[in-house]
């Protein structure tokens, strides 16, 4: 089963998540049930063409999420459906639900899955460990395996010809909760969240100070990109820590990630593992970032950023 939780939209991450569940279900020859809670109608619509069943849990209002009731409802449905695999996304809610749901369903939980395979009838999850320095394949010895995934990395699946029905479930019995979300505020931040950004321009220690970030901002504007930074740049106080990409920062999945004056520590690379194209500008041809790039330019960023911006603006027309 795959779980769609409040806050999810019809985007690459969710499409990838449902598609992966659909593929695994086929491999395991089991039913694919999408369990959704407080998601938009078009997402449900999409789910009906990817799954055998779509079960909708009740919410007070669209998008409403409370930890304990949501968990209780998923537990109830899970107990009824007895899935072999429960797939969740990478968002905050999925991550916090996964281990607890696994425990309640007496299964096992595995986090941060980059790939899911069936070997010898068993569920195997591939994931980066030790700050991206190693890859581990973990086998689920007990089921259900409740797995939260880097679903942005998963490919889409063609829609089924026939849509299934949307069923409404009465949810869990336990509505009492000692913890309650009492306020929720959309960030007033300008632009797109880094996690959703399609293009990211990121700067690192090699920039040497906060001032080149202004130029980076200009370049980003020409590329319709968001600006991000490496941990070194954030630690130095050049930019806000909220821009940090990496193991202890944000994990992003843009179409293009342009790394400028970033050497490419493994922890940083872990944050951009899901990027489609990585490009870099760095003076050092031996910098690790180039080993993870599709293309790159060995040059001092100071000589590149200005003219690059002009060139891109030109080609934008």
């Amino acid at each position: 089963m795959s779980c769609l939780l409040p806050g999810m939209e019809l985007d690459r991450a969710t499409i990838g998540l449902v598609a992966e569940a659909e593929r695994i279900a086929r491999q395991l020859s089991v039913e694919h049930v999408v369990v959704a809670s407080g998601v938009p109608a078009e997402l449900l619509q999409h789910a009906t063409r990817q799954a055998d069943r779509v079960v909708v849990l009740p919410t007070k209002e669209p998008g409403d999420y409370q930890i304990e009731p949501c968990l209780a409802a998923l537990h109830t449905v899970g107990a009824e459906l007895k899935p072999r695999l429960v797939l969740l996304g990478q968002d905050t809610y999925s991550q916090e639900i996964a281990p607890r749901l696994a425990h309640r369903l007496q299964g096992c939980s595995i986090g941060d899955a980059q790939r899911i395979e069936i070997r010898d009838e068993k569920i195997h999850v591939t994931r980066g460990v030790y700050g991206g320095k190693a890859i581990a394949v973990v086998r689920a010895n007990v089921e259900p395996a409740v797995v939260w995934t880097r679903s942005r990395a998963f490919a889409a699946e063609p829609e089924r010809s026939a849509a299934c029905q949307v069923e409404h479930h009465e949810g869990g019995t336990d509505d009492s909760s000692g913890s309650e979300i009492i306020e929720r505020s959309r960030e007033a931040a300008s632009g797109v969240r880094l996690e959703d950004a399609q293009v990211i321009v990121s700067g690192g220690r090699g920039l040497g100070g906060p001032e080149p970030f202004a130029e980076l901002g200009e370049l980003a504007k020409s590329m319709k990109a968001e600006v991000a930074a490496s941990r070194a740049a954030c630690d130095a106080g050049w930019v806000s820590p909220s821009l940090q990409i990496g193991q202890t920062g944000k994990k992003v999945a843009p179409e293009l990630y342009l790394a400028i004056a970033i050497s490419g520590a493994s922890q940083h690379l872990m944050g951009i593992a899901d990027a489609k194209v990585v490009a870099a500008i760095n003076t050092d041809a031996d910098a690790p970032i180039f080993r993870h790039c599709q293309f790159g330019l060995v040059e001092d960023f100071r000589k590149v950023i200005g003219p690059l911006k002009e060139q891109i603006e030109e080609s934008n027309g």
């Binding site: 293009l256 041809a285 599709q294 330019l297 000589k303 690059l308």
Partner: peptide
């Protein structure tokens, strides 16, 4: 598998880089 952008002048290299970026963007 990184393809290093080459070119006779820095201008050429930047133009090539800009083109590749623009294509994706």
């Amino acid at each position: 598998s990184c393809e290093f952008i080459t070119g006779d002048s820095l201008d050429d290299r930047i133009r090539e880089l800009a083109q590749r970026i623009a294509n994706i963007v």
